[in-house]
């Protein structure tokens, strides 16, 4: 069973979520080929061998430096064909999910996104996916011979194996219609850990009392190597940018550790975080509903607790 994995990159480096996708593919079957598009460092591509890729195709065409969904789709369709791959694995993302859908239409594959575990092959080929914004799961049988699987963060434990992957240049004829959606500009936070990819997330709510108090959360996030998030009221009031809004209608996260500060825990917020492995809630209101969904809780003043917590974290690192 040949598996193709689409790996995303940012600033020349393979994204952590894509490394997970390679590890997922390796645990799913044997012959794993990864494909990267645009400008990526060669050592990064070779390094995918450590997660189980035997071979890495690199479509380095400069036109692919921008993540253009239609062009990426057509490169992946061609690569699945050339590699005789039955399964395409990739990470759910603003790029990966639409590409997965389009590839599935064109190749006649069964499609599942938000997949949270390896398939159960005891009765057909069934994957578990997150539904109702993390409030439930569905086991879905993918019955077509070809399958496209978009995985959510922490769908699988990463196991390292030995060996480098062989990197092969890969060319595909691109046409103008692949670039029908023109990218005029991209605004992207650089040098910070992105929320959907972070292992630890520090989030603030209305209890932070104003955007000027975010620096204590940022210090804590820095000490933990974490991303910062916020509740919906905070992004609605413009205290923080929309891409930091965690919840039902914002970003859904599944980190190892989620620290919520001054967030009461409305059900819509919980829906965005309930896949976190461990939740810490810090709130001055002992009745805050978030405590019911937490693993650890502290009742108290965030402005006193957070700087102390940051110091305590630094002390053990």
């Amino acid at each position: 069973m040949a598996i193709l994995v689409f790996v995303e990159s940012a600033e020349g480096k393979i994204k952590a979520t894509s490394i997970e996708a390679v590890a997922y593919a390796y645990q799913l079957g044997d012959a794993v080929t990864a494909i990267a598009l645009g400008d990526v460092e060669k050592s990064e591509l070779e390094g995918l061998g450590k997660y189980g890729a035997k071979k890495v195709l690199h479509a380095a065409d400069a036109k692919l430096n921008q993540p253009v969904i239609q062009a990426y789709t057509n490169v992946l369709i061609k690569a699945m064909e050339d590699e005789a791959a039955d399964i395409l694995v990739l990470a759910n993302s603003s790029l990966g999910t639409p590409v997965a859908a389009k590839v599935a239409v064109k190749t006649g594959a069964s499609l599942a996104s938000n997949v949270v575990s390896l398939p159960d092959k005891s009765a057909g080929f069934a994957v578990k996916k997150s539904i109702y914004t993390g409030k439930a799961f569905a086991w879905v049988e993918l019955t077509n011979p070809k399958k496209v699987i978009a995985i959510r963060k922490n769908a699988v434990d990463i196991k390292e194996v030995s060996g480098n992957a062989a990197v092969t240049p890969y060319t595909v004829q691109l046409s103008d219609s692949d670039f029908a959606v023109k990218t005029l500009s991209t605004e992207k936070a650089t040098g910070e850990i992105l929320l959907p990819e972070a292992n630890i997330v520090v989030s603030g709510g209305r209890g932070m009392k104003g955007p000027e108090h975010w620096s204590i959360l940022e210090d804590l996030a820095k000490a933990l190597n974490a991303a910062t998030g916020c509740s919906k009221p905070v992004s609605d009031m413009g205290w923080r940018p929309h891409h930091e809004h965690v919840g039902q209608t914002g970003v859904k996260v599944a980190p190892q550790l989620y620290i919520a500060v001054g967030i009461s825990g409305a059900i819509q917020h919980l829906a965005g975080v309930n896949s976190s492995k461990c939740i810490v809630v810090i709130n001055k209101d002992p009745e805050a509903p978030f405590f019911k969904a937490a693993d650890y809780g502290i009742v108290g003043d965030a402005f006193e607790i957070i700087p102390k917590l940051t110091e305590a974290i630094k002390a053990v690192k």
Partner: peptide, 17 residues
Amino acid sequence: GYKIQKFELPPPKGAVK
């Protein structure tokens, strides 16, 4: 090519410490 076999709820959360 997509058949839902069954649904599942997440395991109940233990008590907060």
